[in-house]
Design a protein around this nucleic acid. Structure first.
Lengths: 237, 237
DNA sequence: CGTGCACTTGACAGCTGTCAATGCCGGTGG
DNA sequence: CCACCGGCATTGACAGCTGTCAAGTGCACG
């Protein structure tokens, strides 16, 4: 669970979270959780698997805005608007649950601490988007790819520290291209170069980082360090 | 105030907000509210004027991540991390106030409704970043400029509907270049083209939109419509 | 063994960055 | 009142990264 990154959860906190989720439902790879333009601004909790949210522009091109991992809340940015801004597609077979918004309202009343943690997580999402925006504006394709790999690796490693420098993921090179705003062709060329320079190895579903320093230099952004247990957070109960 | 975009504020709501802000302080144009890397992760409320937050990458290039207007909270994305991720510079003479984080914690306890509104505003910020990310990945400089102008105009118009199609702002073309990830030289060329096509006029501090449809097409993203008075929001009191 | 998806490679064009010089305008000082 | 100055914007020439089109390879799966 994302919450634990910021503070310990008491039993009371955990029970406050329970009403948010209903029964888990499965969905096949390739199916959509939501389409852009949908009137229902639903929120989901991803329980297993990978999803991606994408936004498409006039000429049909699409940008992958975010990759969701198990434990991530999906759809929050659609909350303030009347139509879903992004499509959410399952990159693998997944298990998800719908989040009841009335329960979300109650959460703010009954568990200020958990609400504050949810707030913190949203700020972290903002920061990740700011980083990606900066990278997109200032770095070439190699730098963009490096930055995204580092960000994704950090997220995966938070879930499972035992992965070391290995990144197992269902994303294709075309997916990475959509994530960093490049074409699949050019992304392939860049990957080939990074392989030649022994920065990483990259086979179908497994990427291994060999030279993290080189990736950091390509990316050009500092690592973000999470601040845990902030003193201003409301106490549990 | 941003909050009013989403719901009416009762007197109780307003009084819940008061402890957040201390005495207003002025700051000269060009001075910094915060530097990237600062250990203090402070939050500010901008009361008058314009600020911009920027992130710089290894080679010295910098990306303007966001332009803040009066009423905006500044520094929230720095909350989850130990060092300030962005620098905040005053684009004009400004008046600001520091936000007391303990009061922020109390806000979650004592006014769930206002906390939920703060949460909604953060989701809106996320959405704006997602839009900008998509634009950066998928559109050329003309499209990026168009999209940013539309987004900025919508924000200004929310504050003051009487501005019509005119956009008065202290941003230079070099600022716009940093905002959309282009060089000042190329931005100037694109502005010249848009002028020739009678899409807009652009003089030092005043931009007038003549053909909004053309801008929308260049941008390639739909307009976002705010959903007010959502039923799940906690009631006041 | 055939089919489809993912990836690779080559050739070429175009958008955009870089370098450099010039023009414009408001503010300052003589 | 006029000359100078600095910030901002414009224009030209050229190189380079990246997109596009197209063909080909390799691997997984039925």
């Amino acid at each position: 669970m994302r919450f634990r990154s910021y503070a310990e959860l008491t039993p009371a906190d955990l029970s406050a979270l329970l009403p948010l989720v209903s029964e888990p439902k499965p969905l096949r790879k390739g199916r959509f959780l939501q389409h852009e333009g949908d009137r229902s601004t639903a929120v989901f909790l991803l329980l297993e698997g990978w999803t991606a949210s994408s936004m498409s522009v006039a000429d049909g091109a699409r940008q992958l805005v975010k990759v969701h991992l198990a434990g991530d809340l999906v759809g929050l940015p659609g909350l303030p608007v009347t139509a879903a801004p992004d499509s959410v597609v399952a990159l693998t077979d997944i298990v998800f649950s719908r989040v009841d918004m009335d329960a979300m309202g109650d959460l703010f009343v009954q568990s200020p601490r958990v609400a504050a943690l949810l707030f913190l997580i949203s700020q972290e999402e903002r920061l990740m988007l700011m980083d990606r925006l900066t990278i997109m504006g200032q770095r070439d394709t190699a730098g963009r790819l490096a930055a995204f790999l580092l960000q994704l690796h950090a997220r995966l490693r938070r879930q499972d520290p035992s992965i070391g420098e290995t990144l197992r993921c269902p994303l294709t090179q075309a997916n990475f291209a959509d994530l960093i705003g490049a074409t699949d062709v050019h992304t392939s060329r860049v990957v080939t170069q990074l392989r030649k320079r022994k920065v990483l190895s990259w086979s179908r579903n497994e990427i291994v980082i060999h030279n993290r320093t080189a990736l950091r230099e390509l990316a050009g952004l500092p690592e973000r360090v999470v601040a845990r247990n902030q003193p201003w957070l409301p106490k549990s109960e």
